[in-house]
C-alpha cells in the first residue's frame, strides 16, 4: 500500500529543564516527548492516509533515547514506525537531520506524501521539511494550515506573513504543517493497546547509505545558556484587590505606560 510518511522528533520536554542560578541548564530531570507540533503532523498523515486509502507511517531520527518514542507515535495511529538510530542525532543540525530523513524516506519507498511539522518544539528551526524536499527533489508546500487530496493532486492553504495562499501540487510531495492544521486527538485505550502490536523498524546510518561524516553538523555550537529574563518581578502584595490595583496603576503611571 502507498504510504504517507509523518516525520517526527523526540525532544527534551522543555517544561522539565531547570535553569541554574549561574545560567547553565540542567537536563538531568528532563524527560523526552514527541515534539508537540509533530503530533499534528502525525494526525495530518492519518487523515491524509484515510482520505486516499494509503497507509500512514511514522519516521524519526534519534539517539537510543528515541526508542521510547516509537510506541507513543504508533499510539497516534500510524500502521508502523521507522527509526534511524544514531548517537550523531544528539548534535545533528537541520542539514544532517534532513539528509537522514530523506535517505530513510527513499529506503521506506512507495510514498505519496511526506508530512513534517513546520518546526520542532525544541529548536523551532523550520528548515528540515524544505530541506528534505530539496534533497528528494519533491514539490514542497510549507506553512500549511489546511489541505486536501484529490486523486494525485494536493490542494493546500498556506499561512504567509500578510496573506493566505491556496496552492496545488502533484503527488508525491512534501508539506510542512502548522499546528492549526488539525487537533491532534488524545489516543484511546485500544489505540494504546494496538500500538504494542505494531511493527517498528530500526535503521542504522549505513542501512540508509550514510556515514557519520555525512551527518556531521554544518554549524558549530559555541555556547548554550539559559535566557535570563531581566524584569522587575514585583508581586504587588497589598491587602485587598482594590489596593493591589491602585498600587499597580500608580507604578504604571510612574513608568509612563498609561
Amino acid at each position: 500500500m502507498a504510504k504517507i510518511i509523518a516525520c517526527y522528533k523526540w525532544v527534551t520536554d522543555e517544561a522539565d529543564i531547570r535553569i541554574n542560578s549561574e545560567g547553565s541548564i540542567d537536563f538531568s530531570k528532563a524527560k523526552g516527548k514527541i515534539s508537540d507540533y509533530d503530533k499534528n503532523a502525525i494526525e495530518a498523515a492519518m487523515q491524509a492516509a484515510q482520505s486516499i486509502g494509503a497507509s500512514a507511517v511514522a519516521l524519526t531520527f534519534g539517539t537510543a533515547k528515541a526508542k521510547l518514542s516509537l510506541k507513543d507515535a504508533l499510539t497516534r495511529g500510524p500502521a508502523e514506525s521507522f527509526w534511524v538510530c544514531s548517537e550523531s542525532a544528539e548534535k545533528a543540525d537541520g542539514a544532517a537531520t534532513a539528509k537522514v530523513l530523506a535517505e530513510a524516506v527513499k529506503k521506506i519507498g512507495d510514498y505519496r506524501l511526506i508530512i513534517c511539522a513546520e518546526g520542532a518544539s525544541d529548536t523551532y528551526a523550520r528548515q528540515v521539511g524544505p530541506r528534505i524536499a530539496a534533497r528528494l527533489d519533491l514539490p514542497c508546500i510549507t506553512s500549511v494550515r489546511g489541505f486536501e487530496i484529490q486523486g494525485d493532486v494536493i490542494t493546500a492553504t498556506r499561512k504567509l506573513d500578510n496573506r493566505t495562499e491556496v496552492v496545488k501540487a502533484g503527488l508525491p510531495a512534501l508539506i510542512s504543517v502548522l499546528p492549526e492544521v488539525n487537533e491532534a486527538p488524545i489516543p484511546g485505550l485500544k489505540a494504546v493497546l494496538d500500538a504494542g502490536k505494531k511493527r517498528s523498524t530500526e535503521f542504522k546510518l549505513q542501512d540508509i547509505g550514510l556515514t557519520d561524516a555525512d551527518v556531521a553538523p554544518r554549524t558549530e555550537v559555541r555556547d548554550f545558556k539559559a535566557y535570563i529574563m531581566n524584569r522587575k518581578n514585583i508581586i504587588i502584595s497589598a491587602d485587598t484587590n482594590a489596593d493591589k490595583v491602585k498600587e499597580l496603576v500608580a507604578n504604571l503611571r510612574k513608568d509612563g505606560v498609561i
Binding site: G94, R126, A134, C140, R218
Partner: peptide, 22 residues
C-alpha cells in the same frame, strides 16, 4: 518570512551548508 525561510532551507540543502534560522 514564510517565503524566505523556505528559500533559505532549500538553498542550504542544495549547497550542503549550515542554516541558522530566526
Amino acid at each position: 518570512s514564510t517565503t524566505g525561510r523556505e528559500i533559505a532551507a532549500k538553498v542550504a540543502m542544495y549547497l550542503d551548508c549550515g542554516l541558522v534560522g530566526d
